[in-house]
């Protein structure tokens, strides 16, 4: 196991001095349901990308290429915001 810093080694006031360090703290494990993205149905309107509160929709060259399950919380907003006629995201039970 990684040795954590002792109290004398930490920056004062609980500060985090490294920018963007939240990326190192994986929170996908909180999820109980999981979005599944269907590339064939997707029209790449990017609604899901705009609404995802956790920046977990992975977009490359203007196209949704997947979901970052290391951070996705399974809130289902992406599935809800996907146009009903398209319904490219379905929520399924998380199994680990």
């Amino acid at each position: 196991m990684k040795k954590l810093p002792n109290w004398k080694e930490l920056p004062m006031g609980g500060l985090i001095l490294e920018a963007g360090s939240a990326e190192n703290y994986k929170t996908g494990g909180w999820r109980s349901i999981k979005p599944i993205h269907d590339k064939d149905k997707c029209i790449n309107c990017l609604n899901c990308w705009i609404y995802c509160p956790d920046s977990s929709i992975i977009v490359e060259d203007g196209k949704v290429v997947g979901i970052n399950y290391e951070f996705c919380k399974g809130c289902g907003i992406c599935a809800h915001e996907c146009p009903p006629k398209v319904a490219a995201i379905s929520m399924v039970e998380e199994r680990r």
């Binding site: 954590l4 810093p5 002792n6 109290w7 004398k8 930490l10 004062m12 006031g13 609980g14």
Partner: peptide, 10 residues
Amino acid sequence: TDYYFEHRRS
């Protein structure tokens, strides 16, 4: 639980 105690100690 992993950091709060250390920050309070400091």
